[in-house]
C-alpha cells in the first residue's frame, strides 16, 4: 500500500449486555485515507452511533467488542488506557449532537477548551494558552473574546461551533461527527456544514460523518456507507450511491428527502412500510426483506453479503448479482 491508511476497521462486532445481548454492530469493515470524508447513513437503531462509540472506545462497560479498529496501524480496541487517553483528542476527536449537554454549563467555554489542551500538553504558559483558545474560537467563526462566556450565553449554533473548536484543540487527524447538525436550524446547519468542509480542506482532516440524512451526506462526503440493522448494506462514491442506489433500502432513504422542484415527489411523499427492526429480533435472511418492495422468496432465508456492484461500489442485495456478467 502506497499511503498508509488512517483508519482500518475490520469485522467490527459490538454487542450490548442488556437483555441477553443486543447485537448493535454485526460485522462492519471499512477504510479511510488521510484527509478523506466518509459518510455513514442509517436510521435509529442501525448501529451508526455504536460504531462511533467503538471507534473511540467509548462504550458502556460490559459491552462486547470484537474485530479491529486500526488507527494509523494501531488497534484502538486493545490499546493500554494511557495510550488511549493520548490518542483521543490528539489523533481522533469527536463532535456529538446536542452541544448543550456536552458542554459543562458552569464553566466558561474558554476554560473548557484550555482544559482539553492542558490535559495533553503540560507546561504551556498561560498567555500562550489564552492565545490558542482565541485562535481556535476564531477558526470556528466565534470572536475570541467570547471565551469568557458560559455555554448558556451562546446560541445553539455557537455552542456547536465551540464543540468543534474543542475537538480541534489538539490538532487531531480524524474527526468523528455524530449527527453534528441534527438539532440545529437549517440555516445554522448550513453554516456548520460549511465550517466542517472548510476545516476538512484547510487542515487536511479526515472526517467520519454520521447522520440519518442521506442528502446532507451526499453533499458533504466523497464516500458513503449505508447501514441497516448493524451492517453495511451499501457503499460507494456518495453521488453515485445517492443518485443511483443499488440497495432498495438506500433508494428508500434517498427518496425520503424529496428533491424540491422534481415532479416525481410533488404531492407524493415516499416512505417504507414498517419500522427498523429490533436488534434483538432480527428478521432471517436479508434483514431488510420484510420492508422491501422488491423482495424475492429467497430473500427470507438467503444470507446476503456486500457484493461488488460496479466500480468502487458494493451492495448487500441479491439484485446486484443479476447485473454481474458471469
Amino acid at each position: 500500500m502506497s499511503t498508509p491508511l488512517l483508519l482500518d476497521v475490520r469485522d467490527l462486532h459490538v454487542t450490548y449486555p442488556s437483555g441477553g445481548g443486543v447485537p448493535a454492530v454485526r460485522g462492519v469493515s471499512f477504510q479511510l485515507e488521510r484527509g478523506e470524508t466518509l459518510g455513514v447513513a442509517g436510521e435509529s437503531g442501525c448501529g451508526k452511533s455504536t460504531l462511533a462509540g467503538a471507534l473511540l472506545r467509548l462504550l458502556p462497560p460490559g459491552t462486547e467488542v470484537s474485530g479491529e479498529v486500526l488507527l494509523d496501524g494501531e488497534n484502538v480496541l486493545t490499546m493500554r488506557e494511557d495510550r488511549l487517553r493520548a490518542v483521543r483528542w490528539t489523533e481522533l476527536a469527536v463532535v456529538f449532537q446536542g452541544a448543550l449537554h456536552t458542554l459543562n454549563p458552569v464553566k466558561r467555554v474558554g476554560w473548557q477548551i484550555e482544559e482539553a489542551i492542558t490535559t495533553h500538553e503540560r507546561g504551556i504558559p498561560r498567555s500562550e494558552l489564552r492565545g490558542r483558545v482565541a485562535e481556535l474560537l476564531e477558526t470556528v467563526g466565534i470572536p475570541g473574546r467570547r471565551a469568557v462566556d458560559y455555554p448558556h450565553q451562546l446560541s445553539g449554533g455557537q455552542r456547536q461551533r465551540v464543540l468543534i473548536a474543542l475537538a480541534l484543540a489538539c490538532s487531531p487527524h480524524l474527526l468523528i461527527a455524530d449527527e453534528p447538525t441534527t438539532a440545529l436550524d437549517v440555516m445554522v446547519q448550513a453554516q456548520v456544514l460549511r465550517l466542517l468542509e472548510d476545516l476538512q480542506r484547510d487542515l487536511g482532516l479526515a472526517v467520519v460523518f454520521i447522520t440519518h440524512d442521506l442528502s446532507t451526506l451526499a453533499a458533504v462526503c466523497r464516500r458513503l456507507l449505508v447501514m441497516y440493522a448493524g451492517r453495511v448494506v451499501e457503499d460507494g462514491p456518495s453521488d453515485e450511491v445517492f443518485g443511483s442506489p443499488k440497495h432498495p433500502y438506500t433508494a428508500a432513504l434517498a427518496a425520503a428527502f424529496p428533491i424540491i422542484g422534481d415532479a416525481r415527489f410533488r404531492m407524493a411523499p415516499s416512505g417504507l412500510p414498517g419500522d427498523p427492526p429490533d436488534p434483538r429480533h432480527l428478521p432471517s435472511g436479508c434483514t431488510f426483506h420484510p420492508r422491501c418492495s422488491v423482495a424475492r422468496p429467497e430473500c427470507a432465508s438467503r444470507a446476503v453479503e456486500l457484493w461488488p456492484a460496479g466500480e468502487g461500489r458494493r451492495a448487500a442485495c441479491v439484485q446486484v448479482l443479476d447485473e454481474v456478467p458471469t
Binding site: 436510521e43 435509529s44 440519518h212 440524512d213 442521506l214 433500502y249 428508500a252 432513504l253 427518496a255 425520503a256 428527502f257 404531492m267 411523499p269 415516499s270 416512505g271 417504507l272 412500510p273 419500522d275 427498523p276 420492508r291
Partner: peptide, 14 residues
Amino acid sequence: LDASVRGEILQLML
C-alpha cells in the same frame, strides 16, 4: 421520526 417512516406519515396525512 426516522427518515423511512417520515414518508409513511406524510402519506397518511395526505
